[in-house]
């Protein structure tokens, strides 16, 4: 794996499977009475949030604390950034304080890439969502959720999502979640179909490794997972679609549509949901909807990413390299991943 996590497109199939497998190990920690590992003790991670995002920040913070890292939360509001300080100066200030990793959420596409590649800082950079570009840990937690539900918690270890049919519905144009998921799901062998009104599909989408459809109903019967994207009401004012009602009639997921999906198929949403817009309460609250599970899985995935990028100890460093073979016997894996012996 690379030193930074900027884009889901940077991950190889083996990198991604390694992260998912490691996240399963991390998830076991969450099942214990004491949910803490000493792995990143003495390492400092800053959560640098230029955009409001309580859920993503809390998820990273939980992951960092479970790995015993020292956590600094930095939000742009009320900081020197709001007084005109540049990203470069902010980053260098944090670097001077001895930060090992920067988890960055920024409204400008490419800001994490600039942070990682401009020579401003040495710390590892983890993209927690940039503009309408990428949100790689979201894609990873989505893939993790799919693998658990569609392949199995134990059966899934070492496996990818080959041949699974995934449908992503909604505001693709403005969605970093959609971009990250298309990249990662393709890498993992899944077949992705994007569904949206033509106004919310970017010009240039034809080179993406996926299908595009304007008709939700025609895709549902063969889908293994449908991912509903949030659609902001203000898009309506920019003429992306006529009315909220028309949008939900054509592209919203309600009980009738859900009933036409295969029995095993799941409904996903990155949150926050706009109930009544892209998803009805009936669907959101159903057994097939994984929204709450995705949140829990988010912590495990972020633990895995931090663990693999920062490596808390010797075994972790060797683990940070892609494995030679795709399949690990479980005894070999336990030598490299946090075991009960490390727990303090």
């Amino acid at each position: 794996m690379q030193r930074h996590l900027i884009s889901a497109a940077d991950l190889t199939r083996d990198d991604a499977v390694l992260i998912l497998d490691t996240a399963e190990e991390m998830a076991r920690v969450a099942d214990r009475p004491i949910k803490k590992l000493p792995t990143l003790r003495g390492r400092t991670i800053v959560n640098l949030f230029f955009e409001d995002s309580t859920r993503t920040r809390i998820s990273f913070e939980a992951a960092e604390k479970r790995l015993s890292a020292d956590v600094i939360n930095f939000t742009a509001k009320g900081s020197s950034v709001s007084k005109g300080e540049s990203l470069k100066d902010t980053a260098q200030t944090l670097e001077a304080m001895g930060v090992d990793a920067v988890v960055i959420r920024h409204g400008a596409s490419g800001a994490p890439y600039r942070l990682a590649n401009s020579g401003w800082i040495d710390a590892a950079v983890i993209n927690a969502g940039d503009g309408t570009h990428q949100h790689p840990t979201q894609a990873l937690l989505d893939a993790f959720t799919m693998r658990r539900r569609l392949v199995g918690r134990d059966a899934g270890l070492g496996q990818d999502l080959a041949g699974r049919q995934i449908t992503i519905v909604g505001d693709v144009l403005h969605s970093r979640v959609a971009r990250s998921n298309v990249d990662l799901l393709h890498t993992l062998g899944a077949e992705v179909t994007l569904v949206a009104p033509p106004t919310l599909v970017p010009v240039g989408v034809e080179t993406w490794p996926c299908e595009v459809s304007y008709d939700l109903d025609s895709t549902l019967a063969k889908t293994d997972a449908v991912m509903m994207l949030r659609v902001q009401r203000e898009r309506m004012n920019a003429a992306f679609f006529p009315t909220e009602r028309e949008y939900s009639r054509r592209y919203g997921l309600d009980g009738d549509r859900m009933a036409r999906m295969p029995e095993h198929a799941i409904v996903m949403h990155p949150g926050p949901m706009v109930r009544g817009m892209e998803i009805t309460a009936e669907v959101a609250d159903s057994e097939r909807c994984t929204v709450v599970e995705q949140v829990a899985n988010g912590v495990s995935i972020r633990m895995a990413v931090l663990y693999l990028l920062l490596g808390g100890n010797e075994p972790a460093l060797t683990h940070a390299r892609p494995p030679v073979s795709h399949h690990h016997p479980s005894n070999e894996r336990s030598a490299h991943t946090p075991s009960a012996a490390e727990e303090k």
């Binding site: 596409s109 940039d130 503009g131 970017p202 010009v203 240039g204």
Partner: peptide, 18 residues
């Protein structure tokens, strides 16, 4: 608008200048 609207802008998530 931040860059030419096309294949690259779609990927980079930058506002398109058609």
């Amino acid at each position: 608008a931040q860059m030419n609207e096309g294949i690259v802008s779609a990927e980079l998530g930058l506002g398109g200048w058609p």
